[in-house]
């Protein structure tokens, strides 16, 4: 019999869902006890507890998503988040802040920096680190970006004239968190996607004649409207379907992730303006997604039945 009381390890393993514990729990416990015995410990180390909690939470939250899909979403989120941050910084980072509570002669019309520039600046740093392959440093920068996003959001609630609109901070924070799903290793894909996305956003800014120094909500009321973001998400989904049909799997996965990211932008846009419409949009996405997965699985079964894998018995 084992001489170590395994209760503290069993408690730490509760971070994992029961389905995971059923599959791996006893084997994992055995390995944890083997290691503890070799290191002369009779309880989990602090690092071990943190690692188990983090890994357990990751399995609970993301266990349903395969690793390649997670990496594609992280890559698409990095590129899109960076593009949105840069467009925000250029068009809304500096501008005259008009205080409607003051008379015209009392206004300070000097360009002022938006606190949202902190989150945008951290986004730029994080993206450069991603492109340089500094994965760990990029994750730290992204965590700082998310924290800054929340901080600026709170500050903007206290002083609405100083901070950017909530939709800006919410979007930048959500994307920073999405990038943390997985390390971004497809650096070229991230760079190309960021360049294309920035180009599209700039093109529409110029088309809608949005000048630099505009209020932070100008992009959301004139460019990233519910109609436009919905159309963009739909168009990219069609593109991902086409790439999947020509069997360019890696590209299709990334394009689908970009489409998913723009679907998130669409849902954020809907929800921040009207929660009920946002929930309706979410219901539509879930319904369409369920039908899509059903068709995909049926197609996969059909393909498997008619084209047996090479080497299969």
């Amino acid at each position: 019999m084992t001489t170590v009381d395994d209760t503290p390890w069993r408690r730490a393993l509760r971070a994992y869902p029961s389905s995971w514990r059923d599959r791996h729990g006893e084997a994992m416990l055995g390995t944890l006890l083997d290691e503890a015995e070799a290191q002369g410990r009779d309880e989990p180390s602090r690092g071990e507890r943190i690692a188990l909690m983090r890994s357990g939470l990751a399995v609970r939250i993301l266990g349903w998503m395969p690793q390649p899909a997670r990496e594609a979403v992280a890559t698409a989120s990095a590129a899109t988040g960076f593009a949105l941050a840069m467009v925000f910084a250029v068009f809304s980072g500096f501008g005259e802040r008009v205080d409607w509570r003051l008379p015209p002669e009392g206004q300070n019309l000097d360009p002022q920096a938006s606190p949202g520039l902190i989150a945008a600046g951290l986004w730029a740093i994080a993206f450069v680190l991603i492109l340089c392959g500094a994965t760990r440093a990029a994750r730290i920068a992204l965590t700082a970006t998310a924290v800054a996003g929340v901080g600026v959001f709170v500050y903007a609630q206290i002083d609405p004239l100083a901070g950017p609109r909530a939709i800006v901070t919410v979007t930048l924070t959500v994307f920073a968190l999405l990038v943390l799903l997985a390390p971004v290793r497809a650096r070229l894909a991230a760079g190309v996607t960021a360049a294309v996305t920035t180009g599209i956003l700039l093109f529409f800014h110029l088309s809608f004649e949005v000048p630099p120094g505009s209020p932070s909500d100008a992009i959301w009321t004139r460019v990233l409207t519910a109609e436009f973001t919905g159309f963009l998400a739909g168009a990219v989904w069609v593109l991902s379907l086409l790439t999947a049909i020509v069997r360019a799997r890696t590209v299709a996965r990334l394009v689908a992730a970009v489409a998913g990211v723009w679907t998130i932008v669409w849902l954020i846009r809907l929800t921040m303006w009207d929660v009920a419409t946002g929930m309706l949009g979410l219901a539509v996405v879930v319904a369409v997604g369920a039908v899509g997965v059903g068709i995909f699985r049926a197609g996969a079964r059909w393909g498997h039945g008619t084209h047996p894998r090479e080497g299969a018995a």
């Binding site: 791996h24 084997a27 994992m28 083997d34 290691e35 071990e48 690692a51 188990l52």
Partner: peptide, 24 residues
């Protein structure tokens, strides 16, 4: 499991020491 952690440590000449959570 534990033999695998030890073996990875040996193969990598001490550069990579897998955590049990990472291993599983």
């Amino acid at each position: 499991g534990y033999a695998l952690i030890e073996e990875v440590d040996r193969v990598s000449r001490g550069h990579v020491r897998l955590k049990v959570a990472t291993l599983y």
